[in-house]
């Protein structure tokens, strides 16, 4: 029973991170209908920038709270600039190009970012500094750390903020309008380019926060960390129904839970044949199964035949 609770806690934490990253994928997809393949690398850049700033500030003996806040803010700002740049360079010129062209530039951006990061930060794993003592709590038999509690809370806060922004603000309204029908939105006076840029920046900001969270949770940063995380988050977005914000959140949490429960129980289920190293298989199998039975994801609306 302890294992069950523990795996649920772990799954929720991991799922919160997936959800934040998945939101970035799903927002861009909702508006442009394209897979922002480079989004995972934005997460990595966020983590790397946060790492560097945090190291400098801690070395300068700044108070830990201030250092953490500053590094998070710098990471968010850097990622927003990066997101803006990616859209300008790799996607905007190709907005009317054949569908797969932007996918290839996105792959190009992803390769470039990964290798730039490798040049700047090297191939080695970096320890992510933890200026606070990371207290342990017991919750119904499961152990949860301060950092993990913070991750879930911050993720919830950010998602609530995002929902407010999108459903209550003027910008959110233009964003939804562009997602619905770009040319009609343009005719109504919405500046599409600004909305798209802002969407990328918003998604990248969430990615930066997510990058910080994973790094703090695992205490490790690596130039390759964005790839698998991005892949999983994209899976989560599709699982929930891509283009749907609530779907991304649900998909993230569900994927996190599936993974951690799968890793915890796959050994017992298969009579010891499969170990926890099949965790990823489990996630992808569930994805395929969900899509076979619900072709538009968990919360995706059935797209009417375009007759």
């Amino acid at each position: 029973m302890d294992i069950l609770f523990q795996q649920i806690v772990n799954g929720l934490v991991q799922g919160s991170v997936y959800a934040l990253v998945a939101l970035g994928y799903t927002m861009v997809y909702g508006i442009l209908g394209l897979i922002n393949f480079a989004h995972g690398e934005v997460v990595m850049v966020g983590a790397m920038v946060a790492l560097t700033v945090l190291q400098i500030l801690l070395a300068a003996a700044l108070s830990s709270v201030l250092a953490v806040l500053c590094s998070l803010m710098v990471a968010v700002a850097a990622c927003m600039a990066l997101g803006y740049g990616i859209e300008r360079v790799a996607y905007r010129p190709l907005r009317n190009a054949p569908r797969l062209a932007p996918l290839i530039t996105a792959i190009g951006v992803s390769i470039v970012l990964q290798n730039l990061a490798m040049m700047i930060w090297g191939r080695e794993y970096h320890a992510f500094p933890m200026p606070f003592s990371n207290g342990l709590h017991e919750l119904g038999g499961a152990i949860i750390t301060d950092v993990q509690i913070a991750i879930v809370l911050i993720a919830l806060l950010m998602m609530a903020g995002l929902m407010l922004l999108i459903h209550r603000s003027r910008f959110g309204r233009s964003m939804r309008a562009v997602a619905e029908n770009p040319s009609a939105a343009a005719l109504m006076g919405v500046d599409i380019n600004r909305v798209i840029s802002a969407t990328f920046m918003l998604g990248s900001a969430l990615a930066a926060v997510a990058g910080f969270m994973v790094s703090a949770n695992y205490g490790i940063v690596h130039y390759y960390m964005g790839f698998m995380l991005g892949l999983k988050a994209f899976t989560a977005a599709v699982l929930g129904g891509i283009g749907n914000l609530r779907g991304a959140m649900l998909g993230g949490v569900v994927l996190g839970l599936i993974e951690s429960l799968g890793a915890g129980y796959i050994g017992d289920l298969s009579g010891g044949f499969f170990g926890s190293n099949y965790q990823d298989v489990f996630a992808f199998f569930v994805l395929i199964a969900v899509l076979v039975f619900r072709p538009s994801g968990l919360l995706g609306e059935r797209v009417a035949e375009r007759a």
């Binding site: 897979i35 599709v238 099949y278 994805l287 076979v292 072709p295």
Partner: peptide, 28 residues
């Protein structure tokens, strides 16, 4: 057979997942 009725990008992620599944099996 089960996945080809999916729309474009859903198919993309399913095939991607399949590729990973095969690789993970080879690995383990």
């Amino acid at each position: 057979a089960p996945t080809l009725r999916l729309r474009g990008d859903y198919l993309a992620i399913v095939t991607l997942g399949f590729g990973e599944i095969i690789r993970i099996f080879m690995n383990n």
